[in-house]
Structures are given as structure tokens and as C-alpha cells.
Amino acid sequence: MTNSEQQRDDFILPRSRYRGEFSPEALAFNANLQEFANRVSLICGLETNGKISSQEAYEQIKALWKTVKVSKKNLIDGSEPS
């Protein structure tokens, strides 16, 4: 990957440092949460520009939210995967 490609990727999908109390689970959940936020932002942009319907955007965000809830349950709450 060239430097310009890396800069483009960093612009489109920014990542922030983890600043909480460190544990592998918390770090993984933080990465999942950032991915959720990035995808919601992209979905909102697609909906705003008329590329997808409001209902489709809602359904996609709802599905993403379910994955975040499962991630939290498995990583943060310490539950066994279902």
C-alpha cells in the first residue's frame, strides 16, 4: 500500500486511540464500536444522498447494532457466546 492509499484509507475510515483501562477484551470491543460508528456514518451518507432508502438505512443500522450488542455481551460482560 502506498503512502497516498494509506492517507486515503485513514481519511475515509479514521481510527482513534484506545484510552480506557486496557484489557484485550476492552480493546477488541473498542475496535468493534469504532467500526460500528464508521459504518453508521457511511450508511447515513448514502441515505442522505438518496442512494438507499430510509427504511434500508434503518434496517442496516439495526443489524449493525445487534452485532455491537453481541460483541459487548461476549467481550465486556464476559458471557459465553450464544
Score class of each variant (00 low, 15 high):
Glu5Asp: 13
Lys72Trp: 11
Ile61Lys: 12
Pro24Lys: 06
Asn49Asp: 10
Tyr58Thr: 01
Ser53Thr: 13
Arg8Tyr: 04
Thr67Phe: 00
Gly45Glu: 01
Asn74Arg: 10
Ile12His: 10
Val40Phe: 06
Asp9Ala: 13
Asn49Phe: 14
Gly45Gln: 05
Lys69Glu: 01
Lys66Cys: 05
Ser82Met: 02
Ser4Trp: 07
Thr2Trp: 07
Leu13Glu: 04
Ala26Leu: 03
Ile12Thr: 14
Asn32Trp: 09
Ile61Arg: 08
Ala28Cys: 10
Gln60Ser: 07
Gly50Gln: 15
Glu47Phe: 02
Phe11Gly: 00
Asn74Val: 10
Pro14Thr: 06
Thr48Trp: 11
Lys73Tyr: 13
Met1Ile: 04
Cys44Trp: 10
Asp9Trp: 10
Arg8Trp: 01
Ser79Trp: 09
Gln6Phe: 09
Ile76Pro: 03
Asp77Leu: 15
Asn49Gly: 06
Val40Arg: 08
Lys51Met: 12
Gln34Pro: 07
Glu80Leu: 02
Phe36Ile: 03
Ala57Asp: 04
Lys51Phe: 14
Leu42His: 02
Pro81Asp: 01
Ala31Arg: 05
Val70Asn: 01
Gly20Pro: 09
Leu33Glu: 14
Phe29Leu: 13
Arg17Met: 11
Asn74Trp: 06
Gly20His: 05
Val70Thr: 12
Glu56Cys: 15
Ile61Asp: 03
Asn30Trp: 14
Arg19Tyr: 02
Asn74His: 00
Pro81Val: 00
Arg8His: 09
Asp10Pro: 00
Pro14Val: 04
